[in-house]
Nucleic acid binder design. Structure first.
Lengths: 214, 214
DNA sequence: CGTAACTTACTGCATCCTGCAGTAAAGTCA
DNA sequence: TGACTTTACTGCAGGATGCAGTAAGTTACG
């Protein structure tokens, strides 16, 4: 029943450190702002503030709009110091879950079209994210950030989202060009092109931007 | 008790489509090869083949080495056709879970050192992955791939891992340089530098490689 | 003015997934 | 021969997800 604090708890605590939030808005805000760093289900996002209250990291206050109530959560001093402590701990390595990449890793069990479709899906998703992030940040130029004094971190973080989406699009393009040369998906083994790629790897040369070497 | 087939089930089915595997080796192989596309716990990886058997996608055969038994799983024809069908379905959008990015998104709740430490962790993890992938693929040049006729997909996939790791390292370097200029983490808001970044965004120019424009 | 559709504001539940501990045989090194 | 590691798993508590459901307020339209 107590259930200990997880990374998701601290993610919510981060939002509460900005200002008090009603549960519903907190959940909405979290889905939007955590989507690219710590994506969690709406269900969990609703439960986390309760857990924070249980641990003394936040307080809950019921407000009424007519017959309907909503709970406003506020961070406590204890919550703030716990957050400061957490900020100094070592983060876990990142995790990437990509069904489309899974299809490509086992592309030889499907058709060329299947592989191309997986790459197209990857591109579509990345392009959408890219445009979305761009649109949101364009608004910041005109002072549309909900917390103007946080714009510096927001924008820095956004550069990652853009670079990441861009990488996916460029890599997918590269992969499409490679697969377009395949007669089938299966049993090709060490083709000439595979050798070439392996060679550029040993030289630490990027395959999607050959001018780059570390 | 039945429990339906998930993406993880199909991931294991992909491995079984290559050859029959004993549970233990299957788990080991899955942790290694799925780490960058579909990372799952050892515990789940052990359970999945059982589920596949339950659904008629695989068969289980017990082998004995002295007193100790091990279960060898083999894909069925039904499993192969289910896999073919799955390969043609639309993949879910990718999910990135990065605690270090979460720290940066809320860098203003911690110290400059905390932010730098998060970036360092990101770099360390990415550098490790990069070297690991490079080492493994270097072996493929000398024919060390366990399934030589799959080397073309393996290597294509590896290019993503390298590009991704490389992006993280380059972005982290960029972010470190930005944060190094901050007097504090908090309340900076729209600095001159933030404006500059926003401007290059609207021009769709990469901040870590300014020569690139789509 | 009524009602249908949508938004706000959540909760319960089944099922999925993870982490950790535990078991036990077989192999390896001194 | 004893200690340690590797192979080969299983059980269980608890964290996370998806989906359905509830119910009040708000908006659009005829």
């Amino acid at each position: 029943m107590p259930s200990s604090l997880t990374t998701s708890s601290y993610a919510i605590l981060c939002l509460l450190a900005i200002r008090p939030w009603p549960g519903y808005e907190l959940t909405q805000q979290a889905t939007r702002s955590l989507r690219f760093a710590w994506p969690k289900s709406e269900r969990l996002l609703y439960s986390e503030p309760k857990k924070l209250v249980h641990h003394g990291m936040a307080t809950a206050r019921k407000e009424f709009v007519g017959e309907r109530s909503r709970t406003v959560y506020t961070i406590t001093d204890e919550g703030r110091s716990a957050l400061t402590e957490w900020m100094a701990t070592t983060p876990r390595p990142p995790i990437l879950e990509a069904e489309a990449l899974l299809r490509l890793l086992f592309a030889d069990h499907g058709s060329i079209d299947d592989a191309m479709a997986a790459l197209d899906a990857l591109t579509t998703d990345a392009a959408e994210t890219y445009e979305q992030v761009l649109r949101i940040n364009a608004g910041y130029v005109d002072g549309e950030h909900p917390f103007p004094d946080r714009v510096h971190v927001s924008v820095l973080f956004a550069t990652f989202q853009l670079e990441f989406s861009d990488l996916i699009m460029r890599w997918a393009e590269f992969a499409r060009a490679e697969i377009a040369e395949w007669p089938t998906t299966e049993g090709l083994g060490m083709t000439e092109r595979t050798s070439e790629i392996l060679e550029s790897m040993t030289q630490r040369r990027s395959v999607i931007d050959p001018s780059r070497t570390p």
